[in-house]
Amino acid sequence: MAQLGVLQKPAEPANQSKYSVELKHVKKSYGTNGETEIYADLTFQLLKGTFVALVGPIGSGKTTMVNMFAGLERPTSGTIIVLGQDLTRMDEDSLAAFRASAIGLVPQVQTLIPELTVYENVELPLHFAKVDERSRRDKVDKVLERVGIRGEADKGVAKLSVGEKQMVSFARALVNDPPILLMDEPTEALDPLMSEVVLGLLRGDNMTEGRTIFVTTHDKRVTDLARRTLRVNKKIP
């Protein structure tokens, strides 16, 4: 079972309205009888607009945490409230609609659609959020410019390098200007140069301003940017 500890700054005061994410007695286990316990009783909050990093050994449940925040995985018990919405009470389509409007996700494993171009991949979340075509075009153009891949818009993502794909993932996560940005090991598969580009994005005001950022990482350069760092102490057996 993994345990979570605060390494840097202590938890913020318990004012419900200030939180973008609240976990209350969350238990998460896998297996038919729940024999693999990941989190036993997890209670913590993330302040709105804060940048929090989660560190810990490989296989300690960091990705599970990101997935639970995004409503991609449900806790075995307990409550997860994100922006005032209790994710544990929402059906799959409500969760999908919530993700489309409120969550930007940069997953550890590339989830871009290889049959589509860079532009189309970035446009998809806006399509699901039912944004009209003109606004979609404006938003996609702006975000591609912001992450520095405007020139690659018409390329198929299958032809891009790992670093370029990560930039597309960033653009896709940011295109709808979500209040919460979740990133799972955003610099892990990148060469030093591309890592610096990602770190540059994380340092940028227009990336972080007013947005709650939750990132899992092994990269000290990322935790140095975070306002608060949480650690998962144990590897899951």
Binding site: L72, D93, A96, A97, L105, T111, I113, L124, P125, F128
Partner: peptide, 15 residues
Amino acid sequence: LTVSNLRSIGASSRS
């Protein structure tokens, strides 16, 4: 896999 990826960025079963 594509369906799962699309779900992660907000695709509903209906879409």
